[in-house]
C-alpha cells in the first residue's frame, strides 16, 4: 500500500499515469475514501493527466488522528502532500467536504491551484448538513444505510455495518470533527471565496440538498460555471462517467 508520511501521520495515496506532465489531485468527502474516484472517475482523468488520490486522516486506509479537521489543518495536510510529491501546480477537485477543502486550498495557495472543480460542496452554515454529526447514533447509521442502499444497490452486511459503525463512533465521539466543523460555519461568508481568481467548475445534483450551496458559490466566484447533473448528493457514484468527463473537459480547456 503506497503511504506517505504527512505531518507525522501515514497517508494512503494512489497514483495513476505517473508519467503525464500535468497532475490532477482529487479530495474525497467525509466518511468516504479515495475509492469514490478510483474505479471510474480517476481512470477517465488518467487518460491525460497524472492523477493523485489520497485518504483523508482517519478515513480509508490513512492513519487515525484525534484532531485537526478544520479546513486550515486539512489544507496544511494537502499542501504537505503536494510538496512531498514535488508538484509545483495542480488541477484540484473535491467532493462534498473535500470540495470545501479544495476551495480553501485555492484561497490559501492560489499559485498552486491551476483550476478548481467543486462537486457537491455543502454550505457549512447549513444546520442540516452539520446536524448529521449531532444526531449520529446506531439508528442513524442503519437509516443512512437504508437510503444508501437505494442509490448504490448494495446491501451492507454485518461486517461492513460494524466497520462503518466503528468509523462513525470514532469520528463523532473521539475526534474534534464536530467542534472543527462548527468553526467553519461562516466559510462561505468570510469574503475570501469572492476573491478567487481561478476558473472554477461547480458540479451539483439536480435533487441534491446542496444545490443552493452550488448556486450561492456560482454567484460569489467570478470565473465560475455551474453544471447541474441528474441525481442527488451522490452524483459521483450515480454518474461517474459523466462527472469524469466533465472534469476531464474542464481541466483540459485552455
Amino acid at each position: 500500500m503506497p503511504v506517505l508520511r504527512i505531518n507525522n501521520k501515514s497517508v494512503h495515496i494512489q497514483e495513476l499515469n505517473q508519467n503525464a506532465p500535468e497532475t490532477v489531485v482529487l479530495v474525497h468527502g467525509m466518511f468516504s475514501n479515495l475509492s469514490v474516484y478510483y474505479f471510474n472517475i480517476a481512470p477517465i482523468l488518467a487518460t491525460h493527466f497524472h492523477v493523485v488520490l489520497y485518504d483523508l486522516k482517519s478515513h480509508g486506509m490513512s492513519e487515525k488522528t484525534l484532531s485537526g479537521y478544520d479546513l486550515e489543518s486539512m489544507t496544511n495536510d494537502l499542501k504537505c502532500l503536494i510538496d512531498a510529491l514535488d508538484l509545483k501546480q495542480v488541477y484540484l477537485g473535491g467532493y462534498s467536504f473535500g470540495g470545501l477543502i479544495a476551495l480553501k486550498m485555492a484561497i490559501r495557495f492560489p499559485n498552486l491551484v491551476k483550476k478548481l472543480a467543486v462537486i457537491e460542496a455543502p454550505d457549512p452554515s447549513d444546520e442540516k448538513a452539520r446536524g448529521i454529526i449531532e444526531e449520529y447514533s446506531r439508528e442513524f447509521l442503519e437509516h443512512y444505510v437504508e437510503n444508501f442502499t437505494d442509490t448504490t444497490k448494495v446491501k451492507m452486511g454485518k461486517r461492513q455495518m460494524e466497520k462503518n459503525h466503528r468509523m462513525y463512533e470514532y469520528l463523532f465521539h473521539q475526534t474534534s470533527i464536530k467542534e472543527d466543523m462548527i468553526l467553519e460555519k461562516d466559510f462561505f461568508e468570510d469574503g475570501a471565496i469572492n476573491q478567487l481568481d481561478q476558473d472554477v467548475l461547480l458540479l451539483y445534483g439536480l435533487t441534491s440538498n446542496c444545490l443552493d450551496a452550488g448556486k450561492n458559490l456560482n454567484q460569489k466566484i467570478k470565473n465560475s460555471s455551474i453544471q447541474i447533473v441528474d441525481g442527488d448528493h451522490n452524483i459521483p457514484i450515480q454518474e461517474p462517467q459523466l462527472i469524469g468527463e466533465a472534469l476531464l473537459n474542464f481541466f483540459q480547456q485552455k
Binding site: 475514501n33 475509492s35 452486511g157
Partner: peptide, 17 residues
C-alpha cells in the same frame, strides 16, 4: 465480492493493488 465476501470499495482497491 460485495454480497458474500462483504468487501467494500476501499478493500477492493487494496485487493486490486
Amino acid at each position: 465480492f460485495t454480497k458474500d465476501l462483504e468487501m467494500d470499495s476501499i478493500e477492493i482497491v487494496s485487493f486490486s493493488e
